[in-house]
């Protein structure tokens, strides 16, 4: 193994081992923070698949997390208050909710992606943003699910052999999911499919003259990424147990993008490193001042203006 691989594996292992240790030594708060971090890292990893490797700058990824979370919240809501029994959607079973989250976000990605991917560049950025906002307003308009005020998930997803009310088990599920997400993205990227996606990012015209219908390949990548983010959303709903349209706000999408850029686009571990730095910064800054968005925004501008290649890029630079 190269030094970089060693560092990467070490980092992921530390991310899995340290939080439970904090928990056992009486710092439950750190486990909470780490759970959120790991869930966001899954979403950032999924975003990296299309943004980093595919060159599709999606500014609506938070909507997928939101949809995933509501796919947990809405069945739980009906389980408690009635309705939708006929559809089998009044349930707290994770075996229904989580596949539902993945299916709903995959379908949403397919439908909107089919339109978004007809466009390029700025159009694509703005349209992904607009569709995310559409979901936001849709949820706001549905009073039964709390509208603006959000929805409390009274009962977490019930999974065989797992108790998500136990913070350690919830964290464990999230961490295993993150490792799986990283491996899946790696596999997809290195596959023949992944070569086409990367080729289309670098030179779409060339790929089309070789015979690849790049639109369809992009769309498939877009759907995979959306469904992964939907899964992360289902975990997030189980973690916070309170979901609201606010989690789909476009600033949330911006934060996910920031994590990917900060960590380093098109790198295996970049999104995870980015999510870690983001969460730690958010924690430290918001502890210092109510106005933590100010230094945070300045930092973001600085990263964009001066920090090409992200943190992983810095690491690589030293390697070579």
């Amino acid at each position: 193994m190269t030094r970089k691989t060693l560092l990467s594996v070490g980092f992921i292992l530390a991310l899995g081992i340290l939080p439970p240790i904090f928990y056992w030594t009486g710092n439950a708060f750190w486990l909470d923070l780490a759970t959120r971090l790991v869930i966001l890292a899954i979403a950032a990893t999924s975003l990296n698949l299309i943004l980093g490797y595919g060159g599709m700058v999606s500014f609506g990824h938070a909507a997928y997390m939101g949809l995933g979370a509501y796919a947990v919240g809405i069945p739980a809501h009906h389980w408690l208050y009635g309705g939708l029994e006929a559809w089998g959607l009044a349930t707290t079973s994770g075996l229904v909710q989580i596949p539902l989250a993945v299916a709903v976000t995959a379908i949403f990605a397919l439908l909107t992606g089919a339109i978004c991917l007809r466009t390029r560049g700025v159009y694509f950025i703005m349209i992904t943003m607009a569709f995310a906002q559409m979901v936001y307003y849709l949820i706001v308009s549905i009073e039964e699910y709390g509208g603006d005020d959000g929805l409390v998930i009274d009962t977490r997803s019930e999974l065989p052999g797992l108790d998500l009310d136990n913070p350690l088990q919830l964290f464990g599920l999230a961490w295993v999911s993150l490792v799986a997400a990283i491996l899946i993205v790696r596999m997809v990227i290195n596959s023949r499919f992944g070569m086409v996606i990367q080729g289309a990012k670098g030179n779409d015209e060339r790929m089309r003259t070789l015979g690849f219908n790049t639109y369809v390949y992009r769309l498939v990548a877009y759907v995979i990424s959306g469904a992964m983010a939907g899964y992360a959303g289902a975990l997030l709903g189980n973690f916070t147990t309170f979901i609201s349209p606010e989690m789909m706000d476009w600033s949330r999408s911006g934060e996910l993008m920031f994590m990917v850029i900060l960590g380093g686009v098109a790198t295996t571990l970049g999104p995870v490193v980015g999510a870690t730095v983001f969460i730690v910064l958010e924690e430290v800054l918001s502890d210092l001042t109510l106005y933590w968005h100010l230094p945070f925004g300045l930092l973001l501008i600085a990263v964009v203006l001066f920090g090409r290649g992200g943190l992983i890029g810095l690491l690589n630079g030293r390697d070579q």
Binding site: S191, R192, F193, G194, M195, V196, G199, L210, Y217
Partner: peptide, 22 residues
């Protein structure tokens, strides 16, 4: 990679996700 992509294009679709292309 560039040359392999052109060869890959001849073998039908590339919706193959499992085996590393390299």
């Amino acid at each position: 990679d560039n040359i392999a992509l052109s060869l890959q294009a001849r073998e039908g679709h590339s919706f193959r996700f499992l085996k590393p292309a390299r």
